[in-house]
Structures are given as C-alpha cells and as structure tokens.
Computed example of a mutant assay.
Amino acid sequence: MGNIGGRAAEQTCEDPKAGRLTVSGMATVTEVPDTAKVNLAVSVSKPTAAEAREEAATTAESVLKAVGAVQGINGGSDITTSDISLQPNYVWVQETGTNRITGYIFTQNILVKISNLTSDTLGSVVDTAVKAGGNNLQVSSIQIDLSPRLRRKAMDQARKLAVRDAAATADTLAEAAKVALGPIKSISDANYAPPTPLFMGADMAVAGAAAKETPTPVQIGTSEVTATVNVEYAILNS
C-alpha cells in the first residue's frame, strides 16, 4: 500500500502550514441473504360480518397450523398476527346517490419470519400457506434481507476494504503531486444509509389452484453492502 503508516519515514517533520490531502474510499461486499419475511393475508368477503369473521378465522387457523409445521419454522416465535381488520363493502347506488353496504370483508394479516433462509424453506412456506388458505389467501409480499449479525459482519469487512481503497487513492494522488504523505489526521465513516431489503413481490394474489405438486421456484440471490470512508492525510515537507 505504498507509504501507509510510516510511509515517509525519511521525512522528519510535519509542516503545520502544509496542506492536507483528503480522499474517499469505497468498497462493496456481497453476501447471500439469510433472513426473510413473508407477509400473508387471509381475506374473506361475506354478506354479514359474522360470516366473514368465521370463515376467515377457520382459514387463518389452517394457515397458521400448516405453516408452523414447515421445517425451519417455529410456530410459536416465527409467526405473528400483524393486523386484523373488518371493513364494510360498499356499492354506489346511482338512483339514490348513496353507498349501500353489500357485505363485509374480514382480513387477517400474518407475518412469517424465516431466520435460517434457504430457497427450499421459503418456497415451502409459500406453497404450504397457499394450499392451506386456498382462495382466501393472498401473498402480500416477500422481503429478503441480511440479518443484523450478517449485515454488521459484511459492513465491517467493507469498511476495512474502503480504508485500503482510500489509502491507494492517496498514494496515487501524492505521487502525481510529488508530495510525501504524513500520518492520517482523521477518518470518518460515511455509512448512514439504512439497509435496503429485497422485495420479491407485492400484492401478489395466489389462489389455491396455484398450490399444485410443482414447488414454487425461489431464487435467493445476493445482497450488497457498501461502505464509504473519508480519510485525511498530512502532507510532509523535506
């Protein structure tokens, strides 16, 4: 890395009036995501609220039981009821100029967390849920991401590589300017962006007929973690 750390040992002093060389370094580390969140929705429309709630409850119970039995899923901690809603279903009546209630829609949203993500587990969760929920089930979205532990590991590695990238840039600029680099005066971490999960799909309605014997193909893909640092060097005079 050129003259990093004692890079100008033959230079004996740092001129307080000398300038500074500030550079940025960037590096990207690629990891395979290890977590996922599958958002399911059981939605039933019936003439009465009681009928809608009853059928939705029966369907949701079947989905919860089936998905909880999938290998790699802990039904007690990995499955959460995230929301329940009951809404009237309206139709506009032109003759009266008013809305008329034609029935009620009962919806229960279910969040399934996959901690040790594999393509087989993710595909199995989707297929099992669809089979258990039938036409009352909707796969709202699938969010694939790095766990906090893996993201931290990847970010730390990217930071180290970003510092090396900054040092290489500093060496190149110093050589071109015919100056000698002194010690590092400051390093700042410019990584403030929140993690960006990968959404595989949203508002994807899935009918029970989709849950045939052919498993749903799932590709996990990769996720990139990028780090940026700013490094300031002193410039030494002979």
Rank of each mutant, 00 (worst) to 15 (best):
N3C: 13
C13Q: 12
G19H: 08
S24W: 11
A27Q: 01
T28M: 09
T28R: 02
T28K: 05
T30Q: 14
T35S: 03
L40R: 12
V44D: 01
P47F: 07
A49I: 03
E54I: 02
E55L: 13
T59C: 00
A60K: 08
L64M: 14
K65V: 11
A69D: 10
I73H: 05
I73R: 07
N74W: 00
N74P: 00
I79L: 11
I79G: 12
D83I: 06
I84A: 04
I84E: 07
N89K: 12
Q94L: 01
E95D: 11
T98N: 12
N99S: 10
T102M: 00
I105C: 08
T107D: 00
Q108H: 01
K113P: 00
L117V: 09
D120G: 04
V125Y: 06
V126R: 08
L137T: 08
V139H: 04
V139K: 01
D145V: 02
L146P: 00
M155E: 07
A158F: 01
V163S: 12
E175S: 13
A176P: 00
K178Y: 00
G182C: 03
S186C: 06
S188F: 01
Y192K: 11
Y192E: 05
A193T: 14
P194E: 05
L198S: 13
L198V: 15
M204L: 14
A205L: 07
P215I: 08
T216F: 12
Q219I: 12
T226N: 09
T228L: 09
A234I: 06
I235N: 00
L236T: 15
S238A: 13
